[in-house]
Structure formats: C-alpha cells, structure tokens
C-alpha cells in the first residue's frame, strides 16, 4: 500500500515547500524540527525574523509525499494555544 501511495499522482498545487502561519514568535529550532520532522526528512526551514514576517515560516521536505502528509495533518495543529495554518507554497514568482 505504501508503494502504491508513492506512485500516486498528487494534485498540481501539492509541492514540497509548505508556508506556515500563526507560529509562536519564540518557537525554537528544536520545536520546529520536532513538529515538522515527524512527517519525514526536512530539507530546510526558513523562519520569519522581521515584524512583517514573524510567526511565519517555510518548511521544505525532501519528499513531496511527506509534505502532503504534513500539510494534511498539521493544518489546525495546536502549538502553545495557537492553531497553525499550513498551506502549500505557491512557486509562481512575482517579479
């Protein structure tokens, strides 16, 4: 069943980078890797540091199927009495 799921076609908006909102401002690297790492190996996390970007992050998984599982499970996940908003990153660049 796992093998079948791996070959399954995913909708076009699904991608390995997730955009996360409503994070606690003081969240640590340990907590971030703990929460998001549960669903699979993480390629990279970028966290917002400015006034506008704080509380948001980009989490990139090594594997697109892990990213989908994480997005499905972590939307609305409660961290320090806040509910996470997890969206797929939209790779269309605005230039």
């Amino acid at each position: 069943a796992a093998q079948r799921a791996r070959n399954q076609r995913l909708p076009p908006e699904v991608n390995r980078a997730l955009f996360v909102r409503n994070l606690p401002f003081n969240i640590s690297s340990d907590e971030m890797y703990d929460i998001f790492g549960k669903y699979g190996p993480i390629r990279q996390i970028r966290i917002g540091t400015t006034k506008e970007a704080r509380g948001t992050a980009y989490v990139v998984y090594e594997d697109i199927y892990d990213a989908k599982t994480a997005c499905d499970h972590l939307s609305g996940f409660n961290v320090a009495n806040r509910y996470l908003i997890v969206l797929y990153f939209n790779p269309v660049r605005h230039s």
Partner: peptide, 9 residues
C-alpha cells in the same frame, strides 16, 4: 524578505 534559514538542532 525577512526570512533566515533555521539551523537544524
């Protein structure tokens, strides 16, 4: 854009 790479633990 206000983002930094979060070093893994």
């Amino acid at each position: 854009d206000g983002y930094k790479i979060l070093a893994p633990p």
